[in-house]
Nucleic acid binder design. Structure first.
Lengths: 254, 254
DNA sequence: CGTGCCAGGTGCCAT
DNA sequence: ATGGCACTTGGCACG
């Protein structure tokens, strides 16, 4: 890991130089300071003066975090281009991108603390209990859903999106299956119905729609019944954690 | 602002003490270090060793950020309870919550840099181009949608969610309006249809459904026509930015 | 790039 | 707590 540099209560000029250098060297940067934030783009926003932590990542991601909440109060996504200058004794940190065109302007009135980091990390997250795992599980053991069911295709395309699983039951009916990893409401029913509509428009007959999820709200259950669809309760599976070594770790071992 | 404290390459014991103190004093904390992350809860996840920045907020929010991407690779939401201890010469930082029950465990093998902050910030973001602003705009000037339209109610309840705007046209038809701040696909059409279904189940006649958005995908347009609904193009309004002074700023002036 | 969907979505609000 | 939904959703996969 490269050296970590920190400035405490630097002047605006020093802050600007520090940020410029961090951007050039592709470092991850945190800036604690009193700032106001202006955003113009997909929406327009203004955040008055306050003390926050700004994070600038090497990929252009910019995050402004307040002392509470998971989500940043203002941000700019990866791919944004940062720039910084001193103006009226304030540090003006801009992060811009095109398509869509948007600009985040952080005006730092007072820098309290700023640090630049050089992080090495090639690891990837492995996750369980995902919808994709339900898909694999059912493809392998269709009898979980129903005896005699055959899965023909996963992710089958329609004009309105992809069907999670498409199959045929023991009676020869077409079966459209929509999977959800957690409790569902009416909009999951509509998603299923949309795929059925697509095939009915195409002239298909004998189509069954099955919504699969751990649970369902009462309103969604009513709508399932009204539209002659079916719901089956199923929890997402928990597979063994794969603690695969990543490229970075492999390199570290050389 | 309270004092900002920083430790560089502290021992596990020093790190643990530092974190404990920051939690007790309700400070915002950042920890740069080589760590692995385990998550058990709504899903199960494991992130192998790598260098990351962990942020611990006074409200219990915990964020693990890699050097790229907007989203944290692992996290815990506000309301989680953090705890920390030294074990096998490693720092084990846990963040737990109930309902749902979930635990995030960050095992720090090496602390590179850690800082605690005491931030003062009562400011709130004002945002333009929101759906709620389209709602107000149309309520005030219904002729934007159609001459002779009267808006009767906003957020009218149905069994399947709330209707953005409910009104009546010059012919006496009931009009259900669904607003979207950006380009819509088929699922917005279904959302509108769902509200119409609700009133049709109730026996209402003469119901029109109007989807209002800046633009629409071809598939959604087709579905609008198939279901005899209507689409009207409208951009979300940009109102004047309100740079209202917040309580914190008011206090600062005393 | 646009189209569509999953996500440990988060956050907000109403019952 | 549950329900339903907007969001600068972000992220991914595919045409």
């Amino acid at each position: 890991m490269g050296k970590i540099n920190t400035l405490e209560k630097p002047t605006p000029e020093k802050t600007t130089r520090f940020i410029k250098n961090a951007i050039k060297k592709s470092k991850l940067l945190t800036i604690a300071g009193k700032c106001e934030v202006d955003y113009q783009g997909r929406a327009d926003g203004y955040l008055p003066l306050g003390e926050r932590i700004t994070i600038l990542k090497p990929d252009g991601t910019t995050l402004v975090h307040q002392k509470n909440n998971s989500d940043p109060i203002n941000w700019q996504p990866p791919g944004s281009r940062p720039s910084v200058k001193t103006q009226n004794k304030k540090v003006e940190l801009k992060s811009e991108r095109t398509s869509p065109n948007e600009t985040l302007t952080i005006t730092i009135h007072e820098t309290l603390h700023t640090t630049s980091y050089n992080l090495t990390d090639g690891a990837q997250l492995t996750l369980n209990k995902q919808e994709s795992q339900m898909q694999k599980q059912i493809t392998k053991n269709p009898e979980i859903i129903e005896e005699g069911l055959r899965i023909i295709e996963a992710e089958r395309k329609t004009g309105y999106g992809r069907i999670d699983l498409f199959g045929r039951d023991s009676q020869g009916n077409n079966v459209i299956i929509e999977l959800k990893r957690k409790r569902v409401g009416p909009k999951a029913v509509d998603q299923l119905q949309r795929y059925i509509d697509y095939y009915q428009e195409k002239g298909y007959k004998n189509i069954r729609g099955i919504l699969v999820s751990p649970s369902i709200t009462p309103n969604a259950q009513k709508r399932i019944e009204d539209q002659k669809l079916e719901h089956i309760k199923l929890e997402p599976p928990k597979t063994k954690p794969q603690r695969i070594k990543t490229l970075d770790q492999f390199k570290n071992q050389q």
